[in-house]
Amino acid sequence: MNIFRFFGDISHLASIFILIHKIHTSRSCRGISFKTQVLYVAVFVTRYLDLLYSWVSLYNFVMKVFFIASSCYILYLMKVRFRPTNDPSIDTFRVEYLVGPCAVLALIFNYGYAVTEVLWSFSIFLESVAILPQLFMLQRTGEAETITTHYLAALGAYRTLYIPNWIYRYFSEGYVDPIAVTAGLVQTGLYLDFFYVYFTKVLQGQKFELPA
């Protein structure tokens, strides 16, 4: 564990708390892509199957359980508790275009032909693109509530912090995980556009609005 990864994980936790806080205080999940949230559940469940057979640390265990539980809770908030505020008509990204290629990539690039290894790879690839339905929705509506942009910024910060973490690990452990790093770089790249608007508008006190 190094500070980059630690603060990355904290940022990831923070993003989830921000999202839950947003839904509760506004009593609405408007502006949140249900599809992205479903993809996160799929990511966590397929990656953390190792909860059942391997022990890393208490930190690792608690975080994994939290990510699975909180992502399921968010689906519940969106589909049951605040269902009327969820508008599927603007959440139109075709998820099959993400899941299919990720499944193919996982079958080609993995660390061993075991179900758990292929699913682990799949979850890494899927996480890297899971935010796309959300970003697509943002693009379509052209604006976002400030709290929603804080959620995305925290999520993007988590991914960004993993990059110095890998550089640190490369020097301290002499190894780089090619699958995690490649997918991670792609994932961080997806946030660049968002970050630009976030830093130039939201953090200057303006509303998140995309040029028409």
């Binding site: 990864r5 640390s57 660390y111 699958i179």
Partner: peptide, 10 residues
Amino acid sequence: AGWDIWKDEL
């Protein structure tokens, strides 16, 4: 193997 050690990442 290296990749096995790295499975400690979330």
